[in-house]
Design a protein around this nucleic acid. Sequence first.
RNA 1: GCCGAUGUAGCUCAGUGGGUAGAGCAGCUGAUUUGUAAUCAGCCGGUCAUCCGUUCGAGUCGGAUCAUCGGCUCCA
Length: 640
Amino acid sequence: MSNLKVILGDGRKIELPEGATLRDVAFRISPELGEEAIAGIVNGEKKDLNYTLQDNDRVEILTFSSPEGKEIYHHSTSHLMAQAVKELFPEAKLAIGPAIEDGFYYDFEVDRPFTPEDMAIIEQKMKEIVERDLPFQRIEASKEEAIKIFESRGEVYKLELLKEIPEEKVSLYQQGEYIDLCRGPHVPSTGKIKAFKLLSIAGAYWRGNEKNKMLQRIYGISFAKESELEDYLRLMEEAKRRDHRKLGKDLELFSMHEEGVGFPFFHPKGMILRNILENYWREEHQKSGYSEVKTPIILHKSLWMRSGHWEHYQENMYFTKIDEEDYAIKPMNCPGSILIYKCNLHSYRELPLRMAELGLVHRHELSGVLHGLFRVRCFTQDDAHIFMTPEQIKEEIKGVIDLTDRLYKTFGFSYQVELSTKPEKAMGSEEIWEKATKGLEEALKEKEIPYTVNEGGGAFYGPKIDFHLQDCLGRSWQCGTIQLDFIMPEKFDLFYINQEGEKERPVMLHRTILGSIERFIGILIENCAGAFPVWLAPVQVKLLPLADRHIQYGKHIREELVKYNIRAELEEMNEKIGAKIRKAELEKVPYMLIFGDKEIEEELVAVRKRGEGDLGRIKITQFIADILQEVKNNVKEYEN
RNA sequence: GCCGAUGUAGCUCAGUGGGUAGAGCAGCUGAUUUGUAAUCAGCCGGUCAUCCGUUCGAGUCGGAUCAUCGGCUCCA
């Protein structure tokens, strides 16, 4: 019997008997890998473990620890769940059931919606099927055969999918009585699936199109080990604990009301946070050569017709009438800035002209998508419009990237960058798009910033760079965006006078960094679970007298702190010190100053730090110096 | 907007087969004057989301509306 050689990922070659499978390779490498193996990659294609190898195949074994392995594992779990559903609800029709970033889902058409009780029953059935340890069998079939199979089973959605597959051969996967149309690969058997949980039920349109029938979707997650599932569920709990909607109410930062759905109300403490944020933002923009403007919220219809919003954005806009004339509430700030630009004749010497605006925009969002501060109907964009010559594109983009980097780092966020290129429906010439995209690309390369490309994801008026920032739970949020625009300058006939004294068209750059102040505040709240760093904390210091006779001393300390713009509150409630501490801790105030007879004599305070406890007694003057230094460090830490 | 779930005091939640609403915390008052995460007592507080219906009688049953939550779709 002849042997065959396969090449491993690290270049190592191993020899196996003819007819060897991926599983044999895994076990040859190590028994542990053999046990953990989920599937493999052969010459760049994902294959089942029982795939028979050829001489000189390049082979890689996938386990749950790789992204590909995880995806296969999740996908197999979705089949497992679908089998359980079919056993419990034979009339359910299968739609699709892919792996997603965080687990998997499967869509079904059923007579009645699933209930939470159903989830528990389905989970139970899944466990039973795991016990049966049914192999996932790959079946290669012709399209006709597949059609016959799914027709006999009444799987109309599978038939619809089949119709759109151009190939003559398709692959099916079967475990027990369950058959699904699927590219695969899958884990070897249902017994491989160790830990899973069904998470939620939701309606979802067939193919995501609201004109289609609404299906029932079940979401779930699975892991190779029970402990990993527990970790994941703990993380979900943690995310829930940090929910900015709950914390925003508890910490008295903002509120939402039926009287203005999607329009957040900022309370005094929320305003402190917001003002700190905006003031910091202003300082940084001044340093970076921006001027600031403010444009009106309501502007005449004619402006929106000229900008194209009337035609392209109308369903998201609010309207009103003034003196019988039609007006719109602005959904974007750019047309306003353009009117400012047009007030003067501009020389090439003035460019680039960087016009920043904290602009309040209103957009009619569907009621179902509103979500705390993350998705609202009015929000403040930290907008800016840069008017420049085409030659300045690259440098300006680099400038925006630098500013973005500085701002994000100050708040302790890391981020990822995405470049979106020309979409199918785009305005402007091929040439100008190429030039613009190249400008963005080169700026990123020169800055040595890694980025992914979203082919065709740009706006209709120009390519863009998006910044996705990452919070401490590893969740990602789209905030900043840099968009090049050649269309608005055209529509509004913008120009500057060049060196030769001729009119020339400027390029416009729209950009935000924080995105929306409201959303950014929401992200900040969740990122620190409401326990803000000292420079952002609405109340920085809580003064806790031991007994009523110490309140007077507390007033004295408060006056001292106010002199240095330190935000302090004196607790005057008639309680034991433990209760006062507990209250301050729940309010997440960074510092508590505790004082009684012992402290008063020597102008001391006992400092207690949020979450850490007693730091000992120091002079008031020393505390002031320390906290001022900490505030400075909070902002400066990342500035270099 | 669509699908599903939910809506009782400022907050967290009880409330049996329909018989006229209850706890803890918070708030207020008083006692206590406290040494690092809850002192005790008393009091106040609800058109049971809204409207319509069934019923002798509705927090409870039915319908509609509104809002919230989880998704779909969309986005800063």
